[in-house]
Nucleic acid binder design. Sequence first.
DNA 1: CATGTTAGTTCAATGAATGAACCGACTGAC
DNA 2: GTCAGTCGGTTCATTCATTGAACTAACATG
Lengths: 171, 171
Amino acid sequence: MLPKEYSAENCSIARVMELIGERWTPLILRDAFFGIRRFADFADHLAIPRAVLTDRLRTLVQRGVLERRRYSEQPPRQEYVLTDLGVSLWPVLYQISQWGERHLNEGPPRRLFRHADCRTELDGYGFCPACAVLVPASGVEVDNGPGAADHDDRVSRAMVMPRPLLRPIQS
Amino acid sequence: MLPKEYSAENCSIARVMELIGERWTPLILRDAFFGIRRFADFADHLAIPRAVLTDRLRTLVQRGVLERRRYSEQPPRQEYVLTDLGVSLWPVLYQISQWGERHLNEGPPRRLFRHADCRTELDGYGFCPACAVLVPASGVEVDNGPGAADHDDRVSRAMVMPRPLLRPIQS
DNA sequence: CATGTTAGTTCAATGAATGAACCGACTGAC
DNA sequence: GTCAGTCGGTTCATTCATTGAACTAACATG
């Protein structure tokens, strides 16, 4: 999505799409939930042009979805971490991905989402049937499903193990 | 969003964004849920360039989200109606719009969603607290909320009354 | 000293979105 | 029967965003 101005609509869908609807942005956020934090890791994993990545990260920081955080002064290195606002987007992304799994994807699921406490698989709304609670991002565990494509880059290899959302990958 | 190829990702988010992530598409779908069906009504209500509207409608039809239906032979007139696949997108759009209402919008809500059977307001997940059911698109009633901006085009005037989703507007 | 990593910037080429103008087939009002 | 208007588009020039490749600066490692 582009010229980002959806003409101040009487509609929150338009406002949300201005915020996270641009091309690549949803995938950047997905990766952020999966624990990617560094410029080079986003770039490698998404195969996104670096200029675009720079721009998207900057915009997301500016809008309060990500926080840019120095983790080393010499050399200067920064990581991009979801803010609380960013984390609150989890149900939106989950809903999108579940719709895709149900309606677009033949074959076995590529990723499984479980309630970290009890390891029960979540339903399409992020609800844990065993515990009868709606699980927030911080309580979700991701795991590669049987249909996972195997990518062979450094970042993907760091993401094959079951792990909680938001935990930084070690690459 | 654009060149539509998200490089066959190991991820359903990418696939869904290919389908409905292009600029204007979510707003076209929103309007379709609100009962808009005709080319001219979409064009007037969204203020979208007509060439883009033509393209988006065609793409959505091609991908099975909308159906193009002749409602008059002389003169030839067609309407664009959500298919079952299109209707199944309701939770996705609802989730997006609710997130926007909660996090982007100061002031009173612009639109209210109720369970048509009991007229109870739905929660952020489209759940009716009174009946304890998840309400599908066909059971949802839309109403302008106190924060509704008043647009003054023909189509907006037809949309001020409470009405069920998917019922065609009469303009 | 050479090589590699990180986090970028710059640039030319491509492709999409925009807005305005145009069009053919009709309708309804006078 | 003529005139204005509607509907569902198409066409076109301009603007704007994305892409991919090349380049950079600052450091680290061996």
